[in-house]
């Protein structure tokens, strides 16, 4: 199996007529994702890369039976698009868009919970379940079917790490980029918990970074209930305090959110902490006794 993206659900792309939306709709199709339509208000009736475009999410659902969406809509309109997706009954909404105000995300996350929908992201590369489907913008070429579950707060660093795992002859079940923002729809703890429950996942890789306390809370969760081997990598060990390192969430404030605190939390939970991306497959093999 996999986590979250357990089957190739019919999926639409919100913001499909944009540059990123159209490019990645095609890339997702090439990966094998069941892209059944796109939504851009006012562009209904047209097609993008052979994909029919609709004016609204509900219209797209009526015509295609879509159950999930991938959102590329620019930040000022993203709140509205995600609410529309949730209101229309989509189960899974993966938000690639960067720079959505965290105030909007706090509300969207609560709203999704009320309506029983799941948000992944924002400011994330999406989710890929190898051999099933890809929702988002991860490069198609880096994966190989295997038994490692990867959860990451980053984009390109995730590709780097997945690539090393693949090249080492291991492979992945699901790779989820939860996003680099302060508030994310699906957090690290949930992802680790789901990997623990997923039969096919034999080991878990957690890619964290400075800022917030998600890694510390994940370490607590691992102590309590995770039986599978976990390997972690923390980015930002040499980052200065008070500076935002690219991601909205990557900032050390009031002495909280340091790499050191996260590394120590993971170590105390029995997690192997890699000091470089290339060390990750070695530690995985050790822990999996391969």
């Amino acid at each position: 199996m996999a986590i979250i993206l357990k089957e190739n659900v019919p999926t639409i792309v919100q913001g499909i007529t944009g540059h990123q939306g159209s490019f990645h709709a095609e890339q997702m199709k090439i990966f094998g994702t069941n892209i059944v339509g796109g939504v851009t208000p006012g562009k209904g009736g047209t097609t993008v890369k052979g994909v029919p475009v609709f004016n609204s999410v509900s219209e797209a659902i009526r015509n295609t039976g879509a159950r999930a969406s991938v959102v590329f809509v620019p930040a000022p309109f993203a709140f509205d698009s995600v609410v529309e997706a949730i209101d229309s009954g989509l189960e899974l909404v993966t938000v690639i868009t960067e720079h959505i105000p965290f105030h909007d995300m706090v509300k969207l996350k609560l709203y999704a919970k009320i309506r029983g929908a799941r948000i992944i992201g924002p400011n994330c590369p999406g989710i890929t379940s190898v051999g099933i489907a890809k929702h988002g913008i991860m490069p198609n070429s880096i994966f190989r079917e295997g038994s490692v579950g990867v959860v990451s707060r980053s984009g390109t660093l995730t590709y780097e790490i997945v690539n090393t795992i693949t090249e080492a002859g291991l492979g992945e079940t699901t790779v989820i980029g939860i996003g680099g923002d302060q508030v994310v729809g699906t957090n690290m703890q949930e992802a680790v918990s789901m990997f623990e429950d997923d039969e096919r996942t034999k080991a878990i890789v957690v890619v964290g970074e400075i800022g917030g306390t998600a890694e510390e809370e994940t370490a607590e969760l691992i102590k309590r209930k995770v039986t599978k081997p976990v390997v972690a990598f923390i980015a930002g060990r040499s980052a200065p305090p008070g500076k935002r390192m690219g991601h909205a969430g990557a900032i050390i404030t009031g002495g909280k959110g340091t790499a050191q605190s996260k590394v120590e939390a993971f170590k105390s939970a029995g997690v192997a902490v890699a000091s470089s991306p290339s060390e990750i497959p070695k530690l995985l093999k050790e822990r999996l006794k391969l």
Partner: peptide
């Protein structure tokens, strides 16, 4: 210079390490 915040931080860390 790197593309992506996470890769960037990891690059800096590797240089420092």
């Amino acid at each position: 210079i790197a593309n992506g915040a996470g890769l960037n931080m990891a690059t800096i860390d590797l240089i420092a390490l």
